[in-house]
Amino acid sequence: MTEAIYLDDSDRRSFEATVERVAGDRAVLDRTLFYPEGGGQPADAGTLTADGETWRVTDVQKRDTIYHALDGDPPPAGTTVRGELDWERREAHMRYHTAQHLLSALLLDEYDAETTGNQLYADRARIDCGYDRFTETDLADVTARMNELIERSMPVEWYELDRETAEETLDPDRTRIHLLPDSITEVRIVEVGDYDRTACAGTHVSNTDAIGEFTATGRETKGPEEERLSFELSD
């Protein structure tokens, strides 16, 4: 099973690993910084290099282990490779993911709107939530409140709890542990200062001041009592 070192150190940009096996155009490494697609966060991109040859990592997926799709025949099992992340892409995903956590908490606190889904990109994001309809005034208020929260420079921390302890001690409306499969017994918790605490296996910035300026860019109705909010971040 690939060691997911991206869970502990979101700021690292490169690493060394050994190819454990090859499956078609995919390589399985003993350890990786490449985040596999999931939880609304896209897969990382970047390169693997070995013996003077370089492969582009075109996709990363987690199944029984983590598979790295490459743009050519992968290096054989036993090869030591150096992985380099496309850092601009990864950093954007971290900023948007942390902003999404803040937004989910804000919408729950101030609009009683629970998050039902989200999707992040490198230049925008969207969030679906249980709400009747947001107005233009709501969007302006959300933008102002989000920037107030970001400017508080809250630390972002992550750690693991066994599931039973997490379910007994944490607020279920915020952690949303009930959405996780029963097979998950260890829960990774992400905390944003004293404002939000939720279960999440994604990557994040270490302080809200790295998010940048938030702008709610639009809304659309996605069904009975469900709204989709779109947002962008700028430096």
Rank of each mutant, 00 (worst) to 15 (best):
M154N: 06
G39E: 01
Y6W: 13
R228C: 07
S206L: 13
T215K: 11
D182R: 13
G39H: 02
G24D: 11
G223H: 09
S153Y: 05
T221Y: 06
T98F: 07
D25N: 15
V19L: 11
D9M: 12
R197C: 14
R228K: 08
T65Q: 08
G38V: 04
E167K: 11
S104T: 15
T217D: 03
R152F: 05
L103R: 09
V192G: 02
L106Y: 03
V156H: 04
D173V: 08
E148Q: 15
E157W: 00
E164P: 02
Y96G: 03
W158I: 01
D138G: 01
E160M: 07
R126T: 03
G39A: 06
T143R: 03
D30I: 08
Y67Q: 10
L170R: 13
D9I: 11
P224F: 08
E114P: 04
F231Q: 00
E3G: 00
V190A: 10
Y67M: 05
D209N: 09
S230K: 05
R228P: 04
R26V: 06
Y131E: 11
T221F: 05
E37L: 13
H68C: 06
T165Q: 12
T18K: 06
T143F: 06
R82E: 11
S206I: 07
V81R: 01
T116Q: 10
Q41K: 06
D171P: 03
A45L: 12
I177V: 12
Q119N: 14
K62T: 05
A122Q: 12
D132M: 03
L161Q: 10
T47P: 00
E225I: 10
T65V: 06
L229Q: 02
Y121W: 13
T18I: 08
A4P: 07
F34D: 00
T115P: 08
A201N: 11
T215N: 09
L103A: 11
Q41L: 08
D30C: 10
E88K: 09
E157I: 02
L103D: 12
A77V: 10
N207H: 12
V81Y: 00
F134L: 13
V205S: 08
R176S: 02
D235V: 07
A99G: 10
T80G: 00
L149D: 04
L102Q: 05
V60A: 12
R145S: 04
G46T: 01
V60K: 07
T135S: 15
V156R: 04
S104R: 10
K222I: 14
T2W: 06
D59T: 05
A105R: 15
A144W: 07
E110C: 13
A216W: 05
E151N: 15
H97C: 05
N147A: 00
P36S: 06
T221P: 02
E88A: 14
L85M: 03
H93F: 14
A210N: 12
L29V: 04
E3Q: 14
V57L: 09
